[in-house]
């Protein structure tokens, strides 16, 4: 605490972790820091499998991402190459015309009362800063459990959020449908191939244009 040492003092000094020793079963307990793993996978990598779904509307194709949890819960997101990211996201609306998805209510363990959606049912409408409106499809057949209503007030979350945090909704497919659903979706490898091809086409088109 001497004033002479101030300039050399490590600003973290008071924040360094010191392990207290404890013995259990006659042996010292290993400190929690021993569990540190530099290559620890992310939350999405730990629990989810990435699948993709293509929706064609107005002659244009747009890709969506399905994060499939090991317990079959699905998060519906935009795929990273969705054109809305390039156009800039202006607003998200869960009122899809005939029904407002944000009014979905589920009760109990069985999620009673949740809307039952088909893969091409519209979950939400997304408007870009260019004025294009994209229909967000449900991507899978299942029961609507949760709607990410925060996106209505903060549509920019979609651009800033970590992977998964820009989910539109959480769906719960039936156990017996899971195999069919997974088979109908694009795998991550398929998706990478798809991105490669579409960017090549874009390059070709650009080349043709010039």
């Amino acid at each position: 605490m001497s004033s002479l040492t101030i300039t050399h003092e490590d600003p973290f000094e008071q924040y360094y972790f010191k392990e207290e020793e404890q013995q259990i079963c006659g042996r010292p307990v290993s400190p929690i820091t021993k569990n540190y793993d530099e290559n620890y996978p992310s939350v999405v990598d730990r629990f989810f499998t990435r699948y993709y779904y293509l929706k064609t509307s107005g002659g244009k194709q747009a890709p969506f991402q399905v994060l499939y949890h090991s317990n079959r819960i699905c998060l519906i997101c935009l795929a990273p190459s969705h054109p809305a990211f390039a156009e800039g996201i202006a607003s998200v609306n869960f009122d899809v015309g005939n029904v407002d998805r944000s009014q979905n209510v589920v009760k109990g363990k069985a999620k009673r009362g949740g809307m039952v959606l088909q893969a091409d049912s519209t979950l939400a409408l997304l408007t870009t800063e260019k004025g294009n409106v994209y229909k967000i499809p449900s991507c899978i057949r299942g029961k609507l459990v949760e709607v990410h209503t925060e996106l209505i007030a903060q549509p920019k979350l979609l651009e800033q959020a970590e992977e998964g945090a820009g989910y539109f909704a959480i769906l719960l497919p039936k156990i017996e449908n899971c195999d069919d659903i997974k088979a109908s979706l694009m795998t991550h490898a398929d998706y990478e191939k798809y991105v490669q091809e579409t960017s090549n086409i874009a390059v070709d088109e650009a080349a043709v244009a010039t």
């Binding site: 629990f47 949890h69 819960i73 459990v145 949760e146």
Partner: peptide, 10 residues
Amino acid sequence: PIRVLHRRPL
């Protein structure tokens, strides 16, 4: 949490 959401109420 999503990890228990399949068997617990929301």
